[in-house]
Deep mutational scan, measured.
Amino acid sequence: DHWEIRVGDITIHLKDVDEEIIRWVEEALRNGDDLEEIKRWVEEVLR
Rank of each mutant, 00 (worst) to 15 (best):
N31A: 08
D18V: 14
K15F: 10
E19V: 12
D18Y: 14
E19W: 13
N31V: 06
E43S: 10
E44C: 14
R6I: 07
E20T: 12
V42L: 14
R23W: 05
R47W: 03
L29K: 01
I21N: 01
V42K: 00
N31Q: 08
H13C: 09
D34E: 08
E4F: 14
L29Q: 01
D1C: 15
I22C: 01
V25R: 00
E27V: 12
I12R: 01
V25I: 08
R47C: 10
V17G: 05
I22G: 03
E27C: 13
E19G: 07
D9Q: 10
L46N: 01
H13W: 14
V42M: 07
R30L: 07
R30N: 05
R6C: 02
R6K: 08
E43N: 10
G8K: 03
N31H: 10
V17W: 07
V25C: 02
L14E: 01
V42N: 00
E20K: 11
V7P: 01
G8C: 02
R6Y: 02
E26H: 15
V17A: 08
I22M: 12
V45Q: 15
T11Q: 05
D16Q: 10
V45R: 14
E36W: 11
R40K: 10
I10R: 09
E43F: 15
E19P: 14
L46S: 01
L46D: 00
D9R: 05
G32M: 11
V45I: 11
K15T: 10
V17R: 07
G32V: 09
R47A: 11
I21A: 03
I21P: 00
T11A: 09
H2V: 12
T11F: 11
E20S: 12
A28P: 00
D34A: 10
I38M: 03
D33T: 14
E27Y: 15
V45H: 10
K15R: 13
D34Y: 14
A28D: 00
R40W: 02
D1M: 15
E26S: 15
H2G: 09
L29E: 01
I22D: 00
E27K: 15
V25F: 05
W3D: 02
R40S: 06
R30C: 02
T11W: 12
I21H: 03
I22W: 14
G8F: 08
E44K: 13
E27Q: 13
R30V: 05
G8P: 01
W3H: 03
G32Q: 07
A28N: 04
E19Q: 09
D33A: 10
I21K: 03
L29V: 06
I10H: 08
V17I: 07
V17Q: 04
W41L: 05
K15D: 08
K15Q: 07
E4L: 14
K39R: 13
R30F: 08
A28G: 04
G8V: 05
L14T: 02
R47G: 12
E43H: 13
L46A: 03
E44V: 06
L46M: 09
V7K: 04
E27D: 10
A28Q: 07
W24G: 02
W41I: 07
G8I: 06
R23L: 06
I10K: 09
T11H: 07
W24H: 07
R40H: 04
I10V: 09
D16R: 13
A28R: 15
W3C: 04
V7W: 10
V25Y: 02
L14S: 04
E37F: 13
K39W: 14
E19L: 10
I12G: 02
G32W: 10
E27A: 14
R47M: 09
E19S: 12
V17S: 05
I22E: 01
T11V: 07
I5N: 01
I5L: 13
I12W: 14
E44H: 12
L35Y: 09
I12N: 01
V42E: 00
L14F: 11
E19K: 11
E20H: 11
R6V: 06
E4G: 06
R47H: 10
L35E: 05
W3N: 03
E19N: 11
V25E: 00
H2T: 12
E26R: 15
W41K: 06
L29H: 01
R30K: 09
I21V: 08
L14P: 02
R40Y: 03
V45D: 01
I38W: 10
I5C: 04
D18P: 13
E37V: 10
G32A: 07
R47E: 06
E20Q: 13
E36S: 06
E26Y: 15
R30M: 09
W41R: 11
K15H: 11
I10W: 14
A28T: 07
R40M: 03
I12L: 13
N31R: 15
I38K: 00
G8D: 04
A28W: 12
E43M: 15
I10M: 08
D33P: 10
G8L: 12
L14C: 04
R40E: 03
I12E: 01
W24A: 06
E26Q: 15
R23E: 02
D16V: 12
E20G: 07
D1A: 14
L35I: 12
D34F: 12
D9V: 11
